[in-house]
Design a protein around this nucleic acid. Structure first.
Length: 487
RNA sequence: GGCCCGUUGGUCAAGAGGUUAAGACGACGCCCUUUCACGGCGUAAUCAUGGGUUCAAUUCCCGUACGGGUCACCA
């Protein structure tokens, strides 16, 4: 990769809705390349399609990029030396450059009506034309004719005049040289009838004017890149380095989709994924680090990232792997951070104030993969849910409702006798009793867990639950369980 | 359909003309453990396919299959 010049990359989304996860990944790679080489990361809004503009979408882009820590050095909101950074505010520029191209013979006015184009497409389809392109009807209109139509005020577009013969080769850092026959390239529209540029044109002009050195974008642009190169050549501009990244798939044949609720950044935040974990995982989808570590903060990624680790084939999104990474992030949180993150979820099902939340959080943290699992995990704290006596049966512990009753009757006086109530004192007292009775730990503690929680799986065992619930509540629950089993 | 791109375990993937073909997630098993986890240890599982080139190919070349992308006054 050529880094002689100051590296400048850009993320150029269209304000057409929410932030797609694939788009976000492109933003991450784009950011990383800029930062890795101490260059500039630029945000540009490509809103040249007046019809697709979505209210609030620009703010959504800002918000997402910000919470992800992908801070831009130049952009619509903060300005910069080569603004404006919103394409609709640059209309005059594009028209001027399109006309330059007409003058130099690399583009031409086209007065074809939409009806004529539609009819042409219809006929091409009927004739089963394999490569449907504009038929170049206006390509060689005499100058006088063009001037006359222009003077009449006839609507027009400006099309790129692709060479009829020869080939065009472009270079991609990942894919190497790619060559195509010019005869397969369409005389694409550069300037639309409404005076707005197409993406294909605006993109080239802006990337040049903004001094972009490395163009990072989705692989769907691979096939139009030869046309971009022809444009750069027509202008006599230096061609940037291209890095096309493959798509993220739901499975081998489908892209992530809106319908499955797995396409947007916000979907995952809602599902309880931590933002750094999402970033970490999607960075890994289509890119492999050199070493064996897989957990990286954004800053660490800046150092670790290397273009050579990018993949040329599509990657299937694996929710299980992202969950595992999320769990790793949760485990690595400090107690305080976890508390801050988890309490709102605990509060969804726990209203009481007198529980020992620190003990609960300690038990919860290594058992939590997704924050959204928490409410269900702690929903027994306010009150024991309805449960079946079957729960007392545990093959490994050799317990059942009968032995459970026996154990709980032993436990009750022990708990009542504990003075200074905490996990340690309860543990000491209970284990003394276990030894005294000569029973297995589980024989005594499994029923305690059930009695306290009405669940087979809880954050922590009987001892921790005692500590969490407090003496009065624990004793009360054990008594209630004895009563329930006695009936 | 034309053109372009791709194909290493279930998934993400490293890798190199000669390797026991990494690692992670997942699965399974064992250990630890008062459950579930966490942690530890281990097992199974991969070079799409047919031809070349070569002493040697999963690695290089060609074809085939499969998959993806693109063929808009959308980006």
């Amino acid at each position: 990769m050529n880094t002689e010049k100051r590296v400048r990359t850009r993320f150029a989304p269209s304000p057409t809705g929410y932030m797609h996860i694939g788009n976000l990944r492109t933003a991450i790679y784009t950011y990383l390349i800029a930062k890795k080489y101490h260059g500039d990361f630029i945000l540009r809004i490509e809103d040249t399609d007046q019809g697709r503009y979505v209210e609030g979408a620009v703010e959504k882009i800002y918000d997402t990029l910000r919470v992800c820590g992908l801070n831009w050095d130049e952009g619509p909101d903060i300005g910069g030396p080569v603004g404006p950074y919103v394409q609709s505010e640059r209309m005059g520029i594009f028209k001027e450059y399109a006309e330059k191209l007409v003058q130099s013979g690399h583009a031409y006015y086209c007065f074809c009506t939409q009806e004529r184009i539609d009819e042409m497409h219809r006929q091409q389809k009927e004739a089963k034309v394999s490569n449907m392109m504009y038929d170049r009807h206006c390509r060689d209109l005499p100058k006088e004719e063009v001037d006359r139509l222009l003077a009449e005020g006839k609507p027009y577009v400006i099309r790129q005049k692709i060479p009829l013969e020869g080939t065009t080769t472009f270079h991609d850092i990942l894919y190497g040289d790619i060559t195509v026959e010019n005869s397969t390239l369409d005389d694409q529209i550069l300037l639309k009838a409404d005076g707005m540029p197409t993406y294909n044109f605006a993109n080239v002009v802006d990337d040049h004017l903004m001094g972009i050195t490395h163009v990072v974008r989705g692989n769907e642009y691979l096939s139009s890149t030869p046309k971009y190169n022809l444009l750069y050549e027509a202008f006599g501009w230096e061609i940037p380095e291209y890095i096309h990244v493959e798509h993220i798939m739901r499975d081998a044949t489908h892209k992530l989709s809106k319908r499955d609720g797995d396409a947007y950044f916000g979907d995952f935040v809602e599902k309880g994924y931590l933002v750094p974990a999402i970033m970490n995982y999607i960075a890994l989808l289509g890119w492999a680090p050199k070493g064996e570590n897989e957990i990286f903060t954004l800053d660490e990624l800046v150092n670790e990232f290397d273009i050579s680790g990018l993949s040329k084939s599509p990657a299937v999104f694996d929710p299980a792997k992202m969950t595992a990474i999320n769990a790793e992030y949760i485990r690595r949180m400090s107690h305080e951070d976890f508390k801050k993150a988890a309490m709102p979820y605990i509060r969804q099902t726990v209203k009481r104030e007198d529980a020992d939340f620190d003990t609960l959080l300690e038990a919860l943290q290594p058992r939590t993969e997704l924050l959204t699992e928490i409410p269900e995990k702690v929903d027994f704290i306010d009150a024991v849910p309805e449960y079946s006596d079957e729960l007392y049966f545990n093959k490994k512990m050799k317990t059942n409702a009968e032995t459970g009753l026996e154990a709980l009757k032993m436990i009750l006086p022990v708990l009542e006798s504990v003075e200074d109530w905490n996990a340690e004192s309860v543990h000491t007292a209970l284990f003394a009793e276990i030894e005294k009775q000569g029973v297995k730990n589980g024989w005594m503690l499994w029923p305690l867990r059930v009695a306290l929680s009405g669940k087979a799986m809880t954050p922590g065992g009987g001892v921790e639950l005692c500590a969490v619930l407090g003496k009065d509540e624990s004793v009360k629950r054990v008594k209630a369980a004895i009563e329930k089993l006695t009936k």
